Amino acid sequence: MSHHEPHATTEPRTGAAMGMRGCVSASECRSDRPGHGLHAMQERLAATTASKWIDAILTGVDAHGFATVVDFHDGSVHRVWHHDAFDGALQAGEPVALHALYGVLARGTDRFSVAYA
């Protein structure tokens, strides 16, 4: 049996919001972590699992990228985060869809990767 060395401790990186550690700015970020860029496989999987979409209304988006959506069917509230605050593309009161499994927020043809907050 081989001997395993413990992992070295890492220094925490700063960031304005969760998942943003180490990112300088949204326009320069190339990460495909939840809430950053939408990975092609994430988009395909969300498109092929239609039963997991939640129809909702967007109740607000703050400057830090946190959005609140309310489910049309049961009124449950979901809070999600996106790296660049959805690039200003979303407005309160708009109908959206949230993919409960793959973390995708859709408005019309726009798709955003989101992290659940």
Rank of each mutant, 00 (worst) to 15 (best):
2 S>T: 15
3 H>K: 15
3 H>D: 09
3 H>P: 05
4 H>F: 12
5 E>A: 13
6 P>H: 13
7 H>T: 10
7 H>G: 10
7 H>I: 15
8 A>Y: 02
13 R>K: 15
14 T>K: 14
14 T>I: 09
18 M>E: 07
20 M>G: 03
23 C>Q: 05
25 S>C: 15
26 A>T: 08
26 A>E: 09
27 S>F: 14
28 E>N: 11
28 E>K: 14
29 C>P: 01
30 R>A: 10
30 R>G: 10
30 R>V: 15
32 D>F: 09
33 R>W: 09
36 H>N: 01
37 G>R: 12
38 L>C: 03
38 L>T: 04
39 H>V: 08
39 H>R: 14
39 H>K: 06
42 Q>L: 05
45 L>E: 08
46 A>W: 01
47 A>H: 05
50 A>T: 11
50 A>D: 06
50 A>E: 12
50 A>Y: 03
52 K>H: 06
52 K>W: 06
53 W>F: 06
56 A>C: 07
59 T>Y: 09
59 T>E: 11
60 G>V: 04
61 V>N: 02
63 A>Y: 10
63 A>S: 14
65 G>V: 01
66 F>W: 04
66 F>M: 13
67 A>D: 05
68 T>S: 08
68 T>R: 05
69 V>D: 04
69 V>T: 05
71 D>E: 14
71 D>A: 09
72 F>M: 15
73 H>N: 14
75 G>R: 14
75 G>D: 05
75 G>E: 09
76 S>L: 09
78 H>R: 11
78 H>I: 13
79 R>Y: 02
79 R>E: 07
80 V>G: 03
80 V>S: 00
81 W>T: 02
82 H>E: 11
84 D>N: 14
84 D>R: 06
85 A>K: 08
88 G>V: 03
89 A>R: 12
89 A>V: 09
90 L>Q: 00
91 Q>M: 06
95 P>K: 04
96 V>S: 03
97 A>D: 06
100 A>C: 14
108 G>T: 01
109 T>G: 07
109 T>C: 08
110 D>M: 09
110 D>I: 04
111 R>S: 01
115 A>T: 01
116 Y>V: 13
117 A>D: 10
117 A>Y: 04
